[in-house]
Nucleic acid binder design. Structure first.
Lengths: 359, 359
DNA sequence: GCACGAGGTCGAATCGATTCGATCCTCGCC
DNA sequence: GGCGAGGATCGAATCGATTCGACCTCGTGC
């Protein structure tokens, strides 16, 4: 018959006083106590005072959020489905800015952001997490299927950058148009031999040549749209799939594309992100090639690349704006409204990393 | 008397079937239906089948997480208090790795991570968020006071890097020892004129000289500890407070320290993070100074700095390990145990950015 | 002096599940 | 044929708050 101290702690809410206990001590009904705390109904000052005093005496920390959630039917939490584990996903500055905008916007209804990494194995957390809505941030198309549970639960879903035909409210940017602008810019300069350095096509993250076969199995629409934009100008353009979104990955891909004989070397490289472009520039310099005299490089995103002292030719996209738009959509949907789909434009941003092809 | 369609949607759980409804349709009691879903009790196959069929017919999406949370007294959510808004906090790779380790470790009990940016104005969300525990990730000391509510609620709190005397379970690294190692390394090389580039001392983020006055008002213990480690070797060391944690900030600070006459210029700079160090190196190169021939530079963290092709002399700290340790502590505390405090060692990592002072 | 109104308080239902103890039924064994 | 054991099912309490309608009381106006 030993006492079991850990039993008392196993439920963290062990000896915690309830609102009812506070009410009893203050000599009022639970309903009145609730009113006194929330400030919703008419409560005399003296009563409120008595209730608050009782709460203090009992060391009551305020109404239990769990109980409130159940009653209200809202948890005040929005889930953010991100494409990979935190350490990987958050290497992408665009993703971070998007989440920043999202968090900002849902904070107006007091909601917080729950990170849900989409690890391939049938998203367990989605099924059991108390979320009021879910936002897919840069997620693969296959993620949407796993969200059927949420659909059944009638939980609002918003996707940022994804297939437009999924029946899910979508916030998008003109990836295709932006890429076309960049490709056209290079075409106008006279480039004919261009190569791509793309972001991932699917969950598989490895440096690999961009083949028709791999494209066919792609699930990341952003990557595909940006490829399509380039192909409007350079129908046969191909290149390398980078192993990630960091500049290291861009550097590796750049080395593979540029470390060849001058007569087959591309005169311009279209990297699908600014970080990748920075890596490509590093690779070029490493090989003794000057940018843009020997090779032109363009990016995508319009972020300030930390440590890059060049002015990258790129297109700017409203990363934070995308997140904010998704956040507003969530808020509207939770209010019972039906938000209009949002499609952002991009802006061509000339820099000093492009020029005419070498003679 | 117009119908109000939006009223039906205002509560997202509007027409959603309950477990009781499913049970009724299957012709069993709610308790049996619950058992059938959770798989806890002995239920005959035929009954389970009938319940699941009924659920399918009613389009029932499974038990409501909110109700489950209330009953269980657990939400399955751990709050991560981060020092600033997402877009700012997540520029720090150490923070990201720490969160990564934390998320990984709490996922073993199926918990998710709720981001709670600590915006100065009395953390509202902390009070009302349904969290089972809270982890302070690189937060200011003043944040702890705002957590009194959680203390009253008996909610486990773990801090990563913070004042050790706060009565909160702490996961720490040997910031002081690591800095001392670096300083000693420089002293051994013969340096006498060294300067610091520190991380922020408080919420205020601006480039400024490190003065005794500013140090006195500091709230970020990590910064103070690293300063203290250096002072064990160089008692009068001073320098600049960087305006952030990106290499840009390090570059600015570096320019201010190095763009002076050679006879007063420091021969070595101790940056408090690898990112800052990369910026300092960039500043040196910009000024035509060679590293390490003209000036030595050390960092802190041991991360792979994206785009830096040098081998930085630094100390490595287990960023992910810190998060993981905090995660394990949370798990233990939720199980009613009392975890032992964790203090990590750091590891000196020699590189090619340090050498003897110029003659 | 009486009736009406408004402010303050209370009771009880409700949110949607989980779980303990009790009940019932069936099968097996003596 | 009767009795005990064990597996399946059910009832009802519980988690902790919110909220609607009812009720009471006091003040005011006619």
């Amino acid at each position: 018959m030993t006492t079991q101290p850990q039993a008392s702690a196993s439920n963290s809410h062990e000896g915690r006083p309830t609102l009812a206990a506070v009410a009893a001590r203050a000599g009022v009904s639970p309903s009145t106590a609730s009113l006194a705390f929330s400030g919703q109904g008419p409560v005399s000052d003296s009563t409120r005072e008595r209730v608050l005093a009782a709460a203090r005496e009992l060391n009551y920390g305020g109404p239990d959020p769990l109980a409130q959630s159940l009653r209200r039917g809202r948890s005040g939490i929005v889930g953010a489905l991100i494409p990979a584990r935190i350490g990987v996903s958050f290497r992408d500055p665009v993703l971070i800015q998007t989440l920043d905008g999202l968090a900002e916007e849902i904070s107006v209804i007091g909601a917080g952001l729950l990170l849900m990494p989409d690890l391939g194995d049938g998203v367990v957390s989605v099924t059991t997490a108390p979320v009021d809505a879910v936002v897919l941030v840069g997620c693969n198309a296959d993620a949407i299927e796993t969200l059927e549970v949420l659909r059944r639960r009638n939980i609002p879903i918003v996707q940022i950058e994804g297939p437009g035909d999924s029946g899910v409210h979508t916030v998008s940017v003109d990836n295709r148009g932006g890429s076309r602008l960049l490709a056209q810019h290079l075409a106008d300069l006279g480039h004919t031999r261009v190569a791509l350095v793309t972001l991932g096509l699917d969950r598989n993250r490895a440096l690999a040549p961009l083949t028709a076969e791999r494209e066919a199995g792609a699930t990341v629409t952003t990557t595909l749209e940006r490829i399509a934009g380039v192909r409007e100008v350079y129908p046969n353009a191909t290149g390398m799939i980078a192993a990630g979104s960091r500049s290291d990955a861009g550097r590796e891909a750049g080395l593979r594309l540029l470390d060849v004989a001058a007569d087959v070397r591309p005169t311009a490289i279209l990297a699908q992100s600014d970080l990748l472009a920075a890596g490509v520039i590093a690779a070029a310099e490493e090989l003794g090639l000057r940018v843009p005299e020997d090779v032109s490089v363009v990016g995508f995103d319009g972020i300030r690349v930390d440590g890059l002292d060049r002015q990258l030719t790129t297109v700017w996209q409203p990363a934070q704006g995308k997140g904010a738009a998704a956040g507003r959509a969530v808020v509207e949907m939770l209010a019972g409204e039906t938000p209009a789909p949002v499609a952002f434009e991009v802006r061509f941003q000339p820099g000093d990393t492009t020029g005419p092809p070498p003679a």
